[in-house]
Nucleic acid binder design. Structure first.
Length: 555
DNA sequence: GTCAGGTGCGCG
DNA sequence: AAAGCGCGCACCTGAC
């Protein structure tokens, strides 16, 4: 059921079949790299092994480029990271070099940069380096043993499977790319910024706003991109702002404020998602960011290049389905509070969450129907708000849902004391830094004050970690279950591919005829994910789904 | 010239 | 320091 894929010393590639406990079940096979795709394709269609590799990036992008999608894998680096830190596994340490550093395996990966044409094939040199098959086999056996001996083998098995599926999906989504209409994007830029500037000057509309701003501040030399210059100019004009943030400037009534806010908005569009962004990141009608599975401490995905997880609403109209296709965009409604209800086994909160609108349900149960209050209170509990309206509402929330509130409070207390906390499936938070621990031992009054502040900061982090991290687990399982269903649809001639994933949101690019089936698949996957994590606990995870032509039409 | 750190703003 | 969590990226700034 397992099949190791590893470089062999002679520059060839070695395949080694193992059973479910990691025992060898047959002889090794060695092939030259150019014959690997055909061999892997044969093994895949024969018995769909779980491919074992150091990391998906070693093999999968190039297998995909030669048209060999795989069903499942065990990514030793991702699983090694989880198991090395998990509180469920007492004393496991991965022997792989980048598995015990919390996240970023940088230094090994090539530096971030625009996508390098679709992966060179195996026979063009650039062979995979790294641990041998023997070393990978030993690591696999150690990981499987650590899981079996852990406090929660089922949960850790699921987490490893989810991260591993994530590794496959990340590569598949990068290969597919999000359909991006560069012409529509350019039209939108021209509309808001003016024609594309030739050299390095500002676009016309941006320059207009800048000179209007200079006039109204009486600062003819001002560079509005310099916070220091801008701050001085604002003060000279009698605007006593403490920062140059847009939300703060909005409070002042002065003729310079409107052009300044417009300048900031347009400057952001120009710098972050302007013509340079299009040139760097959009090729052949696709936006192809690199996804980094579990790149965030909590287990959320990160991305490298192109700001893939921060596509502003402003430009989403350029993400367009091809003719004859639709975008199926789905997001999990109020995922984090629902996860909290399940984690804390707070049946009262789960009951309120039967409502498709969780905040409305909670408002009806205890906030006099005031949805805004219920939302602020709940988010405050998850994020650790202590002051303001949210802090004041906490006692009320604690009376309504003592179990849920006690659960996040416990996570906060643990963090403040320097303990680690752990998600439902077993991802543990990093231990406090050396610096943090030293600060806690300090004695002077001033240092004590700073130590208390650092302690509270860490409490807010661990409080949020358990909820955000478990939500990321639900979302990754949802994504993996969805992928399985889309593969099944493909078997019936309905083509649909995952093209985007953003924490609690997915996008499918589907043939029009497949859209309805995709909607059903998204629903079923959400139900399946809930069952995988929380069994038959009485908590609902509704998803809202839109079938649209462009991303801006969703929501 | 390069680099780290701060600021600001986009997303969930 | 927007009320609180998690990020990536562009740009400016001061240090080297």
């Amino acid at each position: 059921m397992y099949e190791i894929l590893a470089p062999s010393p002679d520059g060839q590639v070695l395949l080694r079949p193992l059973d479910s406990s990691g025992q060898r079940t047959g002889p090794d096979t060695t092939v030259v790299p150019s014959e690997l795709p055909a061999l892997v394709a044969r093994r895949e269609s024969a018995h769909k092994p779980r491919w074992v590799w150091r990391k998906a990036a070693d093999w999968y992008p190039r297998l995909l480029a030669t048209g060999v999608p795989l069903l499942r894998c065990h990514d030793l680096t991702l699983c090694g990271t989880v198991l090395t830190h998990s509180a469920y596994t007492a004393a496991f340490t991965s022997s792989l070099p980048d598995a015990d550093s919390a996240t970023d395996p940088s230094g090994i990966l090539p530096p971030a940069g625009p996508p390098k044409g679709q992966g060179s094939l195996f026979d063009e040199g650039e062979s995979v380096q790294g641990p041998s098959a023997d070393e990978l086999e030993a690591e696999l056996v150690a990981q499987l043993g650590a899981i079996s001996a852990s406090d929660h083998p089922g949960r850790l098995r699921l987490l490893c499977a989810a991260d591993s599926a994530g590794a496959l999906i990340a590569a598949e989504m990068q290969a597919a790319g999000m359909p991006w209409d560069a012409v529509a994007h350019e039209a939108l830029l021209a509309d808001q910024l003016g024609p594309r500037p030739r050299g390095f000057e500002r676009p016309a509309r941006l320059e207009e706003k800048a000179s209007e701003l200079r006039d109204r501040l009486g600062a003819p030399q001002l560079n509005p991109d310099s916070p220091q210059e801008l701050m001085r100019a604002l003060h000279r004009a009698g605007i006593e702002a403490r920062t140059t943030r847009a939300w703060e400037l909005r409070e002042f009534r002065h003729p310079a404020i409107p052009p300044l806010l417009e300048y900031k908005k347009l400057a952001r569009l120009f710098a972050a998602n302007g013509w340079a962004w299009l040139d760097s990141w959009v090729r052949d009608g696709r936006f192809r960011p690199e996804y980094v599975v579990a790149g965030v401490v909590t287990g959320r995905w990160a991305s490298r290049g192109g700001g893939a997880l921060q596509i502003p609403k402003q430009v989403r109209s350029a993400a367009r389905a091809l003719p004859g296709h639709k975008l199926v965009v789905a997001d999990a409604s109020q995922l984090e509070p629902r996860v909290l209800a399940a984690l804390a086994r707070d049946d009262a909160m789960a009951a309120a969450a039967q409502d498709a609108d969780l905040y409305a349900g909670i408002a009806a149960a205890g906030f006099g129907g005031d949805r805004a209050k219920a939302k602020v209170a709940l988010l405050g509990a998850i994020y650790g708000a202590t002051t303001g309206e949210s802090g004041r509402l906490m006692p009320q929330l604690a009376r309504l849902y003592p179990r849920a509130v006690a659960f996040v409070e416990q996570a906060a207390r643990d963090g403040e004391r320097g303990l680690t906390v752990t998600t439902h499936l077993g991802r543990s938070s990093p231990p406090p830094s050396e610096r943090w621990q030293r600060l806690q031992r300090s004695t002077s009054a001033e240092e004590q004050r700073r130590a208390d502040a650092a302690s509270r900061d860490r409490g807010r982090f661990t409080r949020n970690f358990v909820v955000q991290g478990t939500a990321a687990e639900w979302a990754e399982c949802w994504l993996a279950e969805l992928r399985l269903r889309l593969r099944r649809l493909a078997g019936h001639g309905l083509r649909a591919e995952l093209v985007y994933f953003l924490h609690d949101e997915v996008m499918i690019h589907a043939q029009e005829e497949a859209a309805a089936a995709c909607v059903e698949a998204v629903q079923e996957a959400a139900t399946a994910a809930k069952r995988l994590l929380f069994g038959d606990a009485p908590v609902q995870f509704p998803v809202s789904i839109a079938v649209v032509d462009s991303y801006d039409q969703a929501k």
